[in-house]
């Protein structure tokens, strides 16, 4: 899919440059960082900047290599091969974005191996066919470290196949700007929302709870913008999504009420 309008993306550091150079040098990129820190938005922005179509795959527990490369399907009395998203990207020279790659089954990692080194080839063993990647093909994956230590980690040998860019929640000022840009609320409100978020992030650092992503703040701001009362917006947009525990929720509401 070609991205027509330039998405809004506020650069945090030198990530735009890094990404552009990786593209030029046919290197794969791994975006590391917690959810809602703008990784997806960044890839969309870069795809637009580079003028390359983007294919996004959200990986989950059941995502297998077949889902990416393709499978035979029955068509009438015939069986026909159908390319998966990865195969299409390789053939047509797109950027493929594998979101949350650590969630996928291990055979996915095996399937992309030959694409992440000098070969830049995809091997379809079922057809069988060997496809050389078109020049503008680029593999981008995202990964949320920390959140699943011991459960689902990316092996060091896999990580070594990527250039890595770290994402984190933006600094206060930048985050306010993003919230204002994305929702259209005014500065005094965006300030308050970002402040509440920063306090909740303190709790996250102490391991007490899920964290508030920029995404949640933006969503809350949108609710406020469209006219829902502020406290209610904060409660449903920023607090309820974080926990199901009564006591925790009460404390978070106390906290938000102090600030808005």
């Amino acid at each position: 899919m070609l991205i027509e309008h330039q998405p809004y993306y506020k650069a945090m550091d030198k990530e735009v440059e890094v990404f552009a150079h990786c593209f030029k040098n046919n290197l794969s990129v791994l975006l590391k960082g917690p959810t809602g820190t703008g990784k997806t938005r960044f890839v969309e922005y870069m795809a637009h900047q580079l003028g390359v179509p983007l294919i996004t795959v959200a990986c989950h527990e059941e995502t297998s290599a077949t889902d990416l490369t393709g499978r035979y399907i029955l068509k009438g009395a015939e069986t026909v091969w159908q390319d998966g998203p990865l195969t299409r990207a390789v053939r047509e020279g797109c950027i493929i974005y594998l979101d949350e790659i650590a969630e996928a089954r291990p055979d996915v990692i095996v399937a992309i191996h030959s694409l992440t080194d000098h070969r830049r080839q995809l091997f379809l063993d079922k057809v069988p066919e060997e496809i050389n990647a078109t020049d503008s093909f680029m593999l981008v994956a995202s990964y949320n470290p920390g959140y699943q230590k011991g459960f689902k980690e990316l092996k060091p040998s896999t990580r070594q196949r990527f250039v890595s860019i770290a994402f984190d929640y933006p600094a206060t000022k930048a985050e306010q700007e993003i919230v204002e840009q994305e929702s259209g609320i005014d500065t005094s409100d965006s300030k308050k929302l970002v402040k509440i978020a920063s306090k909740i992030r303190n709790l996250n650092e102490l391991g007490l709870m899920e964290t508030v992503s920029t995404r949640l703040i933006v969503d809350t701001a949108k609710l406020i913008k469209s006219g829902l009362p502020k406290r209610l917006s904060v409660e449903v947009g920023m607090i309820q999504p974080l926990s199901d525990d009564e006591e925790t929720l009460t404390a978070l509401k106390d906290l938000a009420d102090l600030m808005i």
């Binding site: 909740i200 303190n202 102490l206 404390a251 106390d254 906290l255 102090l258």
Partner: peptide, 15 residues
């Protein structure tokens, strides 16, 4: 107590 502890920890960032 635990409700207040949450608030104190959030505001200070300390345990």
């Amino acid at each position: 107590n635990s409700r207040l502890t949450f608030i104190a920890r959030a505001l200070t960032g300390e345990n």
